[in-house]
Measured scan of single mutants.
Amino acid sequence: MDETGKELVLALYDYQEKSPREVTMKKGDILTLLNSTNKDWWKVEVKITVNGKTYERQGAVPAAYVKKL
């Protein structure tokens, strides 16, 4: 869990989004888990830093590609 009490997951593999509802992640990324009720796809929040600014993006990733921490 992070400092706000939200559950975290670890990306076990790289994943490139294939639709606007998904998010890209790299192996080793730590993501915030938002919903894991679907056994195949979990909704997560990814933090992306671009030019020193951090953005948050929500989307789905394959459940088999992440592990709860």
Rank of each mutant, 00 (worst) to 15 (best):
E17V: 05
K47W: 08
M25R: 01
W41K: 00
A63N: 02
G5W: 09
Q58R: 11
G59K: 01
L31I: 06
T4L: 12
K26F: 09
L10T: 06
E45V: 12
I30S: 01
N35H: 08
V50G: 05
N51W: 05
K6Y: 13
L33F: 04
L69H: 04
E7T: 12
P20K: 09
S19Q: 06
L10F: 08
L8Y: 15
L33Q: 01
L33V: 06
R57A: 06
Q16R: 10
Y55A: 06
S36P: 06
L31N: 00
S19I: 04
L34V: 12
L33S: 00
W41C: 07
E7M: 13
T4P: 13
E7N: 10
K67L: 11
E17I: 06
K6W: 09
R21S: 14
T37F: 08
D29Y: 03
A60M: 15
E3I: 14
E17F: 09
T4G: 13
G59P: 01
Y13L: 09
L69P: 02
G52Q: 05
D29M: 12
T4Y: 12
K18T: 11
S19H: 10
P20C: 12
D14L: 04
A63G: 03
N38W: 05
N38Y: 07
Y15W: 10
K47E: 08
K43T: 15
M1A: 13
L12Q: 02
W41T: 04
L10Q: 09
D40K: 12
T32V: 15
D2L: 14
V46C: 10
Y15R: 00
R57P: 01
I30Q: 03
E17S: 15
W42N: 00
R57F: 08
W42C: 05
T4W: 13
V44E: 00
A64G: 09
E45Y: 07
T32I: 15
Y13D: 06
D2Y: 12
L8R: 11
I48Q: 07
A64N: 11
V50F: 09
E45W: 05
A63T: 05
V50K: 10
K43H: 15
A11D: 01
L12R: 03
E56M: 15
T24L: 04
Y65L: 14
W41E: 02
T37H: 10
I30L: 07
V46I: 14
K67T: 13
K68P: 09
K27W: 04
T24Q: 02
L33P: 00
V50N: 07
D40A: 08
L69D: 01
V50R: 09
L12T: 01
T32H: 09
P62C: 07
R57S: 05
K53R: 12
T49I: 11
K6Q: 10
L10E: 10
A11M: 03
Q58S: 11
N38L: 07
K6V: 12
L34Q: 01
V66Y: 03
L12W: 03
E7R: 11
A63R: 07
G59Y: 05
N38Q: 09
K27L: 05
L12I: 08
V61I: 08
L12N: 01
D40R: 11
T54H: 08
K6N: 09
D40G: 07
Y13W: 09
R57Y: 07
K53W: 10
V9A: 09
T32S: 08
V50Y: 09
L34H: 03
E7A: 11
S36R: 09
L8Q: 10
T32C: 10
N38R: 08
R21Q: 14
V9T: 02
R21T: 14
D2P: 14
R21H: 14
L12A: 02
E45M: 13
A63M: 04
T54C: 12
V50S: 08
T54M: 10
K6D: 08
A63P: 05
V9K: 00
M1Q: 13
Y65G: 05
V50P: 00
L8A: 06
G28H: 03
T49N: 10
K68A: 07
I30V: 11
G52K: 05
K26W: 07
K18M: 10
G59F: 08
E22T: 06
E22P: 03
L8S: 07
S19G: 11
K39M: 10
L33N: 00
L34E: 01
L8F: 14
L12D: 00
K6A: 10
G28S: 03
M25A: 02
N51V: 05
E3R: 12
L31M: 12
K27Q: 10
A64W: 08
K26M: 07
Q58L: 06
D2F: 13
T24I: 04
T4C: 15
V66H: 02
N35Y: 05
S19A: 07
A60N: 15
R21P: 05
G5S: 11
L31D: 00
E7D: 09
L31T: 00
K68Q: 06
K53D: 08
N35G: 07
P20H: 10
E7P: 10
L10Y: 11
I48Y: 13
S19K: 04
V46H: 08
P20L: 09
L34W: 03
V23P: 01
N51S: 08
A60Q: 15
E3D: 13
V23H: 02
Q58T: 10
P62A: 03
L10I: 15
Y13M: 12
L34D: 01
W42R: 00
V9S: 00
E17H: 08
L33R: 00
V50E: 11
E56D: 11
V66N: 01
V66A: 00
V23R: 02
K6F: 11
R21M: 13
A64S: 14
V46T: 11
K68R: 12
V46D: 00
L69M: 09
D29H: 03
L10A: 03
A60S: 14
E3K: 13
E45P: 00
G5A: 13
N51E: 11
W42G: 00
P62M: 05
L34M: 06
A64M: 10
D29E: 08
Q16A: 12
Y55H: 09
T24S: 15
K47H: 11
D29Q: 11
L12P: 01
Q16G: 06
K6G: 10
W42D: 00
A64C: 15
D40E: 11
V61Y: 02
W42E: 00
K39G: 10
E45R: 10
D14G: 04
M1N: 13
G5N: 12
N35T: 06
Y15A: 00
W42L: 05
Y13R: 15
D14R: 03
A60R: 15
L10S: 03
Q58C: 12
A60V: 15
N35S: 12
I30N: 00
P62E: 05
E45S: 15
K53P: 02
D40N: 12
Y65E: 03
K26P: 01
Y65C: 15
A63V: 05
T37R: 08
K26V: 07
K68C: 09
K26R: 11
S19V: 02
T24E: 02
E45D: 02
W42P: 00
K47Y: 10
R21G: 15
K43G: 08
E45N: 07
M1C: 15
M25I: 15
A11K: 01
K68W: 06
L34T: 04
D40V: 12
E7V: 14
V23M: 08
E56T: 15
L12C: 12
V61R: 00
D40S: 10
V9F: 04
K47A: 09
W41L: 03
V23Q: 03
A63W: 03
I30Y: 04
E17T: 07
T24K: 02
